[in-house]
């Protein structure tokens, strides 16, 4: 498992990207999806995930929908219109960041 601290600053971008690919998702589903996609390399802790989701919701980037599942209620998150725009911005920022890092750590190779 890689250094989790390196991923910490990208949590919001990861959530937004996942929600852009999937119509709506709930908290536990997000953690499992990330684990699956990264083959266990990245494990999002619940203590970090939910505060991030609530922040995004407060910023108006996410909308919520509550549905009854079995004997309990489930809160689904989905992107708002602003959220979709912000996802594109954040992904572009991330690409730039990765390019810069690539130049820094390995100047001979680049992502381009």
């Amino acid at each position: 498992m890689g250094n989790q601290k390196l991923y910490k600053g990208s949590l919001q971008t990861i959530i937004l990207k996942l929600l852009a690919q999937n119509d709506k998702m709930y908290g536990y589903e997000i953690t499992q999806h990330v684990k699956e996609l990264t083959k266990g390399e990245l494990k999002i802790t619940e203590g970090a995930l939910y505060p991030a989701l609530h922040k995004l919701e407060a910023e108006g980037l996410l909308d919520v929908e509550v549905a009854k599942v079995g004997n309990r209620l489930r809160k689904y998150y989905k992107l708002t219109e602003n959220g979709t725009k912000e996802t594109a911005n954040k992904l572009a920022e991330m690409q730039e960041f990765l390019k810069t890092m690539q130049h820094l750590v390995n100047p001979k190779f680049s992502l381009e």
Partner: peptide, 9 residues
């Protein structure tokens, strides 16, 4: 509600 669902899952 959200934590209950998380634990339950």
């Amino acid at each position: 509600m959200e934590i209950v669902d998380h634990f339950a899952s």
